[in-house]
Every structure is written in C-alpha cells, then in structure tokens.
C-alpha cells in the first residue's frame, strides 16, 4: 500500500481539502480552460501577467484530488515568477511526472509530492492538466484538452 500513500500524501490531501487561489480572477490578462474529456476533469485557469512577470494565478473547476492539488500548488508556485522561469518549471514538472517510476527524479520541493502519479499511469494526466492549461493560457488558446496532441 506504500504506492497509495505516495499518491495521496498529506500535502496533496490538504490542497484538495483547501485549494489555494481557488477563485475567478476578474482582471486576468490570460485565461484558459483545461479539459480531460476521458474523465470529465475541467478547470479554468486565470493569470495576470505584467511586464513578463506572473503577478496573480487562480483557478476554478471540478476534478479529482490529484488535479485539484496540482492546480492549487501550481498557482502558488507561479506567482512572482517570470515567464521564462515559469516555462522552465513546466518543463521540469513535465519531466518529473513522465519519468518511469524506477528512475530518480529531481527534487521540486512541494511539487515533488505529485511524483507518486508515476505508479498510476492513468493519473499522470490529472497532475499535468493544470500545467498544460497554463501553457494554453499563455499561448492565448481558450480551450485545451488532454486528448489533443
């Protein structure tokens, strides 16, 4: 059962119970909807970007504990980051959740709590949905889906 406790770590359960930045952002400069049609997870991400820096990040939506916790932690992490730093984080996060479970991954602090999805292949998209929605928002794509390539 250790894989289950790796997946549902206390930090993830906490962000699921009390998601941070869980609201709409009236004056957002970027916004996108992320959707996983296979499971029904749906979230709307709001960003305020000013002079290349993410000043605000927030989200709304319905999804499983993993997708909600991932979005919650992502919005916390992105605030105050430059777009270049945020893009690097996206790359690192993506690498972390797609590395095979028997290989080591780099420490990403709080975000590392999501590395447990690697033992549950169908849950990887739950963790990465928020991050792909973030990329879509910056690219001014209003809707992104986990089933697009």
């Amino acid at each position: 059962m250790s894989e289950l406790t790796d997946l549902y770590q206390e930090v993830i359960l906490d962000h699921n119970r009390r998601p941070r930045n869980f609201h709409a952002l009236a004056n957002a400069s970027h916004r996108a909807e992320g959707y996983n049609p296979l499971c029904g997870d749906r979230l709307t991400l709001y960003l305020s970007v000013s002079e290349g820096v993410i000043t605000e990040a927030a989200f709304e939506g319905a999804g499983c504990a993993i997708s909600k916790a991932s979005a919650s932690m992502m919005t916390e992490t992105l605030k105050g980051k430059t777009l270049a730093e945020a893009d690097a984080l996206f790359q690192r996060f993506h690498r972390m959740v797609t590395t095979p479970p028997d290989q080591p991954v780099e420490d990403m602090g709080k975000l590392s709590s999501l590395a447990g999805v690697r033992e549950f292949p169908i849950r990887v998209k739950c963790a990465s949905l928020a991050w792909h929605t973030f990329k879509a928002a910056l690219a001014n794509e209003p809707i992104t889906s986990t089933e697009q390539t």
């Binding site: 894989e3 499971c39 499983c64 549950f120």
Partner: peptide, 21 residues
Amino acid sequence: VHPHDVGTIVDREGVAIRTGH
C-alpha cells in the same frame, strides 16, 4: 472524495470499477 480517487484506491484493493461521467 472525487470518484477518480475512489476508483484508484478500490482498484488497488482488487476491485475494478468504472468512474467518471
């Protein structure tokens, strides 16, 4: 508790169920 989380845990206990819409 979201049904996907229910599904993952129930699966680990040896029961396959469907979750979602």
